[in-house]
Nucleic acid binder design. Sequence first.
DNA 1: AGTTTCGGCGCC
DNA 2: AAAGGGCGCCGAAACT
Length: 559
Amino acid sequence: MTDRWALAPAEDGGVDVAPLGPDGLPAGPVVREEDPSRAVRSRPDVTRWVWRSTAEVYPRLLATGVRVERCYDVEDAETLLLGHEGRSGEPRSAAAALARLRGGPVPPDPPQRSAEPGAQSTLFEPQGTRLPLTDLLTVYAEQQRRHARAEHPDRMRLLTAAESAGMLVAAEMNHAGLPWRADVHRAVLHDLLGERYAGGGEPRRLAELADEVSAAFGRRVRPDLPADVVKAFAQAGIKVRSTRRWEIESVDHPAVKPLLEYKRLYRIWVAHGWSWLQDWVREGRFRPEFLAGGTVTGRWVTNGGGALQIPRVIRRAVVADPGWRLVVADADQMEPRVLAAISRDPGLMEVAGRESDLYQEVSDRAFSGDRAQAKLAVLGAIYGQTSGDGLKNLAALRRRFPQAVAYVDEAARAGEEGRLVRTWLGRTCPPAASAADDTGEGIPAAEEDTGDRAWVPGYASTDARARGRFARNFVVQGSAADWALLLLAGLRRRCASMAAELVFFQHDEVIVHCPEEEAEAVVAAIREAADLAGRLTFGETPVRFPFTTAVVECYADAK
DNA sequence: AGTTTCGGCGCC
DNA sequence: AAAGGGCGCCGAAACT
């Protein structure tokens, strides 16, 4: 029978549900259920739930122990479809989509709230305009037709399905939390920073380093104030334009060493110190809010706690529960492998078809054995390096892997010219932030007077160049994010039959928390999911996506 | 006084 | 060696 059902929260705390036919329209009556969890639990044969917003519905289900196999997130799909259609500036709520269909006034999107420490407030609040189930399905049915009009309909369907799966994963990670030992964290802080003083001021070690810096300059200097430091260097006869580490490092002055150490420890103190611990860790779990597809490229972001920037020394505090393990899995050289897959460059695909160190392989072929140079060249090509040794290295890369370099060059040109640029699955980079709706898409804004100027190498404006670099990186980083979604979806599926839980994801790295006896099965599941994700995302190519996996009790012991 | 931007740096 | 992509976070500085 029907395996797709739709679900829409009602005003009274209940939900409306209805089975869907192949056309995406109701294939049976709409039923009102008082208890959302029971509505789902009592329909175990449903393999995909269509709903407005995973963030609205799914946390409530998880709180009562209910999980779903798949979903389709209408508002996420709307965002992806609008982007693909070159309409990324338009409101993306389901209500807006409905209004566009009916020709009424289109409501603007509600402002996004930012997370507050420990608030968890998003769990029970609808964060958008509710839509009656029949209206939601009107939007859904039209979205099905819009998929068919996409540049690659099958890929577009895969993209929206994959990102919906990612939203389930994100909600489940938010629910599970990352195992966190506050006592270990405190021990690390004490070890690095020394005792805290009453009143919330700097801990002992920072105060000592500040004194050393002041002594070296011969006057009181606050090392946390860049302007103060620049002035102090100037008085010592040393011109520095900023206090960035790479600029200070080469300066010959006794203040440099304690200053750099101060900056390192200061960073840990303010970003992951005692107040962070107080704010973000509860009952042995760090609970950031993962947001799938939170960036233009499709990379995830987190709200609160800086979960994607946990310093290495602090990872000591991430410890598995007793009898459990952390399976830490890191994709090896993901971005160049993705470049091989999307460009179909024969040489690079052959290199990426091996599981061995890709940079070493590239180096052997194009850089006479200098791995570091090869790595810089590959990353420079992806990031759009414009100067330094990178250019010389790029030439060597271009000779050996012309199709790969041409692929990112073409993306850069499209970006500079203001054309749409897409990932392999069809996530689309807006041409530029529109002047009307400048809510900060992260896209460098277009200049007003360059629209009709032909693209000439070397003559593009600074802004156009920035857009070019963005677009060049977008196709690789974004396609990598496409692949990562498929990986997560596959891994989630394999973990569903185990006690294992996904607890962390960071671009090309995933952590699974599982009983010790499941660890080897999880390692195997990651490899299988990676292979499958490679085939599903990019089709049949020789490219492999190997992982480095470690089964550990403590995150810091991985790699 | 409250809000936004900046400088710097953590991660990939 | 030098500076090219994506983020979030913090305090201070620069606004209103």
